[in-house]
Nucleic acid binder design. Structure first.
Lengths: 167, 167
DNA sequence: AACAATTAGATTGTGTACAATTTAATTGCG
DNA sequence: CGCAATTAAATTGTACACAATCTAATTGTT
């Protein structure tokens, strides 16, 4: 039983980090569904809001940097994903899209009050989850750290580049 | 600088385990692209093949268990995802789909020789990657373990259920 | 100024994910 | 047996991902 002569070697599914990541990522998305459904948004839209909420702090940045490109850089998503996603968010009144005056190629993304209004609700939910999570804050912290270390070595792009190394 | 009065608290993007998982999973898929393109398959199709290659060992299981449902259980995917994916794999000659004789509701999935032929090529690539990876085997192992621990606590389903706890 | 090269998004096409519904086969029970 | 519940896939509809291509605006030369 413990002897596995059938040589799947490096290819055993359970041995694959890639599958563990894939499964864990989808399980995480699933775990967010109750909140997302309550807020009426999808998971990637929620990630967009996380960025916009950060950008919405007074005097954080030059307004001209709130572009589709900057958003994509932060989330590592390209325009093929973000453009339709942002259009849907615009239809729901969560953001406004407009061309930059100084460079008409650039589309600026601005959060609306309706978008801001979702923040405390998300915050409450996340805080509540962290409180009665079966996973300890230390475990979460360690896993998150390892994932970013791993991502950096994959050349996938750093979690943040510069200003707000806030934790 | 270390004081972040703009209270994003629990919602700072970089603090989100969910985003780390999401980004890492997509980065991993990206890392597999060269091989996948070479084999002419997609990432989820590759995961299906990993399962089929495991099932393809002599005397491993009852044939009647090589169903869409069993595949979905292993990969945590439902028929809405698997059915079209398997149809595409069938068109490329990698698998055969047929109804089970004993229960016509069940669709059995069988690997073909063309599907088997991809295994050594994948194996070579994965082995090569592990060899000159910037991430040590210990790191990979630890991360993988933590992800499964985490997944189990999320209630996402165990990596394997029963027979082949082979590593 | 003129024009090739670059850049930022948008578009197109393919392939997942997954909720919700539908269809067909099987099971359980009176 | 007969039929309501269950079960397994398939289907439908919405929303990502991402490669490849296209379009329009800008820049860097000469």
């Amino acid at each position: 039983m413990t002897i596995c002569d059938h040589d799947n070697g490096a290819l055993a599914l359970n041995r694959q980090l890639c599958f563990a990541l894939y499964a864990a990522s989808r399980a995480m998305t699933r775990a967010y569904q109750p909140m997302l459904q309550d807020l009426g948004i999808t998971y990637p839209q929620y990630l967009v809001l996380l960025v916009l909420w950060e950008w919405d702090q007074p005097g954080e940045r030059d307004d001209t940097d709130f572009s589709v490109g900057a958003l994509g850089g932060r989330l590592m998503l390209d325009s093929g994903t973000l453009t339709p996603l942002l259009k849907r968010m615009e239809q729901r009144g969560l953001v406004i899209r407009r061309r930059a005056a100084r460079d008409e190629r650039v589309t600026l993304v601005e959060i609306t009050d309706a978008g801001r209004a979702l923040k405390p609700r998300a915050q409450d939910w996340v805080t509540r989850q962290l409180d009665d999570s079966p996973v300890s804050p230390q475990e979460v912290e360690q896993l998150r750290g390892q994932l970013w270390t791993f991502l950096a070595k994959l050349g996938g792009g750093a979690p943040v580049s510069g200003s707000s190394v806030d934790d």
